[in-house]
Amino acid sequence: MRLFGKRIPIGASLLVWCAVWELAGRVGVSSIFPPLSRVVAAGMTILPTEKFHLAVEISLRSFALGMAMAICVGITLGILLARVETLGRILGTWVNVFVSAPISALVPVLMGVLGIGETTVVATVFLFAVFVIILDTEVGIRKADRSLIEMARAFGARNYQVYTKVLVWSALPEMLAGIRLAAIRGVKGVVIGQLLISIIGVGELFELYSKHFLMEEFWALVILVFAFAFLVSESIAYLERRVEYYASAR
């Protein structure tokens, strides 16, 4: 961010926004925005509660399960799509459609099939996350240096070794980029899934707070979810930068 032609460090710009929020809250722009200080205070009171811990546990579990499945399925399918030509032609367009499709519209259908519970949330996370992983893995594998594959074969690589020793490593930067985007979508998936079901996890808390107009608690929870998504995506981005360094000569 820039102000009067000077670069402002990100921490400072965050502080400014916090101040704006605090002031807007105190002036009373809208009852939806309580002052930040009261939101933080509310957050402090939520954090130690049993209900919050339970919500976090359930949400993290759904997120982790959904992401793990999305990563396994996404990478496998991405590799297949890139390497098996007919499959790429048949499924390629569908993946592209689903990457940009509004997956939330599918959640009620999932609810009908999988019931109102954790399974549906896991499935939502999976669907939110999987397509971008497929797409990025496919791109990464396609981009892999043909001469490296040829080299591996010349030195006697078996078919599976071409995958495990060359293709996967060569596509690692793209795969990680896909997983990072998928994780951000996955957080959305948890919240949206739970909101639509509205009887478990963080979604239940959101529902509860907004129904009783507990705006301070509501915003505190929003901040926590944001922070979580940011943290996950930053740690993957860190891995990405390290891999990018090794692969910089591609």
Binding site: L148, M151, R153, L172
Partner: peptide
């Protein structure tokens, strides 16, 4: 097919960058 008795040196080196 490729075999252990033949080894290749490539024009573009074909080294694993990682």
């Amino acid at each position: 097919g490729p075999g252990a008795e033949r080894a290749f040196v490539f024009q573009d080196f074909a080294l694993l960058p990682w």
